[in-house]
């Protein structure tokens, strides 16, 4: 019944999807948090950069960003990201870079909305005992902000998992790329679609459930 799967490395393709997701998730959480810190910083230049970045990046389609990084960064400017001759590795790294750049804008906005849920008195009390701006942010405000936005961050993460399919545009051998190949070569189009849809649900469903549980567990009581 599942003969059409024969000869195709479906698990391998999904493994690539998982790798893209994990690397991009870590990168965009870090970069997104830094962007959020910039957006609330007292330095106008940083605030300006953060605001401009978020507003520009989240309004550009991801496909455009990914194609730009491949054609523009790699082909025209010769950026190799440490993978000069290995096009598979270069493609993977460019895809992660693009996904991080894009997803970080959404992570930033989630965290910033989380920062707004932390009462002003928390930061004032932190400053009053002598913590500086960065300590106040790292030790008091961000930990509380994160806990209040685990739900929204789960949505960003789920969107990221699905967005990895855009890496197909620059030939990264992830799930969507394989699906396209299979649909071209096999007759069972519907079944193939169902398999890949199921694959993505298997990847994203636990993310939502686990983070939803964490959100409840870690909620800050006031």
């Amino acid at each position: 019944m599942f003969d059409f799967l024969e000869g195709y490395d479906v698990l391998g393709a999904f493994w690539m999807t998982v790798k893209l997701t994990v690397f991009s998730a870590v990168g965009s959480l870090i970069w997104g948090t830094l962007l959020a810190a910039m957006r609330v910083s007292p330095v106008p230049l940083m605030r300006g950069f953060g605001t401009a970045y978020v507003n520009i990046v989240r309004n550009i389609p991801l496909t455009v960003i990914i194609v730009f990084s491949s054609l523009g960064l790699a082909d025209i400017f010769g950026v190799t990201l440490g993978a000069k001759d290995d096009f598979d590795v270069l493609g993977f790294r460019l895809a992660v870079l693009s996904l991080v750049a894009y997803t970080a804008a959404f992570v930033c906005e989630s965290i910033r909305s989380g920062i707004n849920t932390v009462p002003l008195g928390q930061a004032e009390a932190a400053r009053a005992i002598g913590l500086n701006f960065s300590q106040t942010l790292r030790l008091i405000v961000l930990p509380q902000a994160f806990r209040s936005v685990i739900g929204p961050l789960a949505n960003v993460l789920i969107a990221l998992t699905k967005n990895t399919t855009v890496a197909a545009a620059i030939g990264v051998a992830e799930a969507a790329t394989l699906m396209k190949d299979m649909i071209e070569n096999e007759a069972q189009t519907l079944a193939i679609g169902a398999v890949f849809a199921l694959g993505f649900v298997i990847l994203t469903l636990p993310t939502g459930l686990i983070l939803g549980w964490l959100a409840k567990r870690l909620a800050v009581k006031r």
């Binding site: 009462p119 008195g121 928390q122 004032e124 009390a125 932190a126 400053r127 009053a128 005992i129 002598g130 008091i140 930990p143 509380q144 806990r147 800050v220 009581k221 006031r222």
Partner: peptide, 17 residues
Amino acid sequence: LRADVGMVFQSFNLFAH
């Protein structure tokens, strides 16, 4: 300086987490 000046607020402001 702030560490040398203790402050107690009306709304306590204990670190909630």
